[in-house]
Nucleic acid binder design. Structure first.
Lengths: 153, 153
DNA sequence: TTGATATCATTTGCATACGAATGAATTTAC
DNA sequence: GTAAATTCATTCGTATGCAAATGATATCAA
């Protein structure tokens, strides 16, 4: 029996023997590998920033000053994770922090001039990263894939 | 202009103004979110094991005793990462380690009886995790998606 | 055979990622 | 108006994930 038959079997929820559970056909495993490949492509093109750091800068460019928590929501990071990311961007002078004047719980984050320069400079590279990540697909496949992937995210 | 128009624009490599770079349309960002969602589904169904730990056990079940390095290759983990995963499985008595008799560099990893019981018990849950992860798609969409995702991984 | 390479594993350092607990500030409910 | 609940941020602990450096062993090549 071929791997594709196994996939079909699983999809159709037919009986599947426990002894032919194949890790390499599970969506979670392949999703993890696809993500790894993307991160590797990213690192090759943008060496001095990680994808989460880039995401924070790109989103700040998009929405302007926001609270750390709100930024985390926008880029799908929990509070603990976003704190680390912002701390490191701050240490490098790419963002600046301030307290919200009315709601004193909130920590406002904004791009510095240097941070704005950096993100503007990096966006063309990010477009190339997207292209390279999707390079194994035709344009038509890309459109299909992005539509389906979005449903899973 | 709609988001889909932006996507189309990007796919077709037409000119794209730098001021409308949208993070939430980039494949890397959505891939990261889809992966996060899968991990969350996994944790809800299998609380006492992480996806990488499960992958190690499932692959050992598949191939039998192997070197730590080889196992890492099979489950797409570098040497440093796989060491941590195996150490934790060993601490819980799910795998056992031994030295290769001929090649003394190699550290052989194998399931214990307890490890084998665990993975056999978990495989049905893993099938459910796959199903739930893919639940937003129809069967036809699943087949398409898995085919395209595999090309990117 | 021995010197250069390559492989296997380990360790260190850094960066996500998230659950859980905590404290401060705000909002809601009554 | 106050007590309860919620929100925002921080901290801690654990677990990937990977680059780089190191040491031990094995293989290759001259």
């Amino acid at each position: 029996m071929s791997g594709e038959d196994n996939l079909l079997k699983l999809v159709e929820a037919e009986e599947a023997d426990d002894h032919d559970y194949l890790l390499q056909e599970q969506v979670g495993f392949i999703l993890r590998k696809a993500h790894q490949r993307h991160v590797s492509i990213f690192a090759a093109r943008i060496a001095d920033l990680t994808p989460p750091q880039f995401a924070a800068l790109a989103k700040l460019r998009d929405v302007g000053e926001t609270s750390q928590n709100q930024l985390g929501t926008l880029i799908a990071m929990d509070a603990a994770t976003v704190k680390g990311v912002i701390d490191r961007l701050k240490a490098r002078g790419l963002v600046e922090l301030s307290r919200h004047e009315v709601d004193k719980r909130r920590l406002l984050v904004n791009l510095t001039a240097e941070g704005r320069d950096a993100i503007e400079r990096l966006i063309p590279l990010a477009r190339e990263i997207t292209q390279e990540t999707l390079a194994p697909l035709t344009n038509k496949e890309i459109a299909t894939f992005m539509k389906l992937l979005a449903k899973l995210a």
